[in-house]
Amino acid sequence: MCLRRFVSRRGKPYEIYSDNGKTFVGANNELGRVLKSSREAVTEYGSTEGIRFKFSPAYSPHFGGIWEAGVKSSKHHLKRIAGNAALTFEELATLFTQIEAILNSRPLSPLSSDPTDLLPLTPGHFLIGRPLKSVPSLLIEKSRANRYDRIEQLRQQFWERWRREYLAELQQRTKWRRPDRELKVGDLVILKEDNLPPLCWRLGRITKLYQGPDGVSRVADVLTSRGTVKRAVHKFCIIPGDDIDPNSTA
């Protein structure tokens, strides 16, 4: 049923990469049983419309790479905000769908090399062709009896926790075994600001760098949709682009 819901929403995938969960293995076996039917029409249909399952080795979640890391991060925060919440199926489905939108709104890389273009490439572009947005809502700081407000409060709590972790991943500081990538004018960055609503990323382009006596830039002017602001380097994160060295630690 999960596979049917996915195909109905997103369309039929050509390949599905997954672990060895019983539901995935069972779906693969069921599809294989149908496609091996003696009916020629079904066989011809399956050769063009079939789904190829690619399973990672058993007990090897690290083969999942980036998607397993995303699932782990989501579960970590979800258990802490809604682990003891008594939610109905509709409320839980609403919360999961909104968390899905939060994860698919994260900036991946600059959308273009235009220095005035502040839009990043996000997973939402691959799904609907444009960034994902959310319905505006007020900041809810205290628990309320209203069930609708409770779901919104859980979403906002997840957003704050997950957003901080994602920005920290973009701004990792490791050993100085390799030279870090230097900032450049035109780099697309995410500004680290508090109390932003869910799915709202404040983005900007570096327009000017201020170097210290040692030649290291620690302050920059950033062009945003609200004008140019001056920020310290540790107050924004660089969005990876095509010009970044894959061996760099930046």
Rank of each mutant, 00 (worst) to 15 (best):
R10Y: 15
Y14H: 08
S18P: 07
N28M: 10
R33F: 12
G46R: 07
G46W: 08
T48I: 14
E49M: 15
S60L: 06
P61D: 14
W67M: 04
S74E: 02
S74D: 02
K75F: 14
H77A: 11
I81M: 10
A82F: 11
A85K: 13
A86L: 15
T88W: 02
E91T: 10
F96N: 13
T97P: 00
Q98S: 11
I99W: 03
A101W: 03
P107I: 14
L108E: 01
L108T: 05
L111K: 07
S112G: 09
S113G: 11
S113E: 14
S113K: 10
D114T: 02
P115W: 02
P115M: 04
T116A: 15
D117L: 03
D117M: 04
P120F: 13
T122N: 09
H125L: 05
R130M: 12
R130G: 02
P131K: 10
P131Q: 08
K133H: 09
K133W: 04
S137Y: 02
I140E: 06
K142F: 12
K142N: 15
A145W: 07
Y148P: 00
R150M: 09
R150T: 05
Q157P: 05
Q157S: 15
F158L: 08
W159C: 04
R164V: 02
E165F: 09
R173I: 04
T174K: 11
R178M: 01
R178Q: 09
D180Y: 06
E182P: 01
G186F: 04
D187G: 01
V189E: 10
L191A: 07
L191Y: 07
E193G: 00
P198Y: 02
G204E: 12
R205V: 05
R205N: 13
Q211T: 05
D214L: 04
D214Y: 00
G215F: 06
D221F: 01
L223Y: 13
T224N: 08
T228K: 13
T228E: 14
R231N: 09
A232P: 01
F236N: 07
I239F: 05
D245V: 00
D245R: 00
